[in-house]
């Protein structure tokens, strides 16, 4: 089936089978490989992207559902020369190691900060329950998010 969606502000059309996942549309059909697949049970959050500004797991959306969606991926929030403040904070705080969970973690972190006031250590940690990181022990991820929540 042909589906149309907006990805990082650009209108896209792809021709895929019904059982294609949004994450595969992004990675395989649009070449946006920053969104990762770390599990097959919707637990790890590595595939987190924004749909209409809210974080969702792109591994749990099928192609026909994606028709008409407005998707933002890690590639759409900043560039090396113009990083999003959350990207900058992750780098500054050493909030990543292998980098595999990082795009999903950053996308969820942005949702968290944009939709919650008065974030503290506990609420940031609870807000990351849909994202797994095996490298950092989360310590520096929490620091990075706190720094953005505190206004930099």
């Amino acid at each position: 089936m042909k589906i149309s969606l907006t990805v990082n502000g650009e209108a896209c059309e792809v021709d895929v089978s019904n059982n294609t996942l949004l994450v595969d549309i992004l990675r395989t059909h649009l070449g946006l490989t920053g969104t990762h697949v770390g599990c097959d049970t919707s637990q790890c959050g590595a595939c987190t992207v924004h749909v209409d500004g809210r974080a969702i797991k792109a591994c749990t959306v099928i192609a026909p559902q994606a028709d008409g969606m407005n998707v933002t991926t890690i590639e759409g929030i900043g560039t090396p020369d113009d990083l999003h403040p959350m990207q900058e904070a992750f780098r500054e705080c050493h909030a990543l190691q292998c980098g595999f969970c990082t795009p999903g973690m950053i996308m969820q972190a942005i949702d968290l900060v944009e939709n919650n006031d008065n974030l503290d250590n506990r609420s940031i940690r609870e807000g990351l329950e849909g994202n797994l990181c095996r490298c950092t022990g989360y310590h520096n991820i929490v620091r990075a998010i706190q720094s953005v929540a505190d206004g930099g």
Binding site: T33, I74, E75, G78, Q87, R91, G99, P103
Partner: peptide, 19 residues
Amino acid sequence: VRRREDVRFITGAGNYTDD
């Protein structure tokens, strides 16, 4: 030193095997 490899990872430009 802030890690130089981070720039590609935080912008989704990492190059993993499945990429």
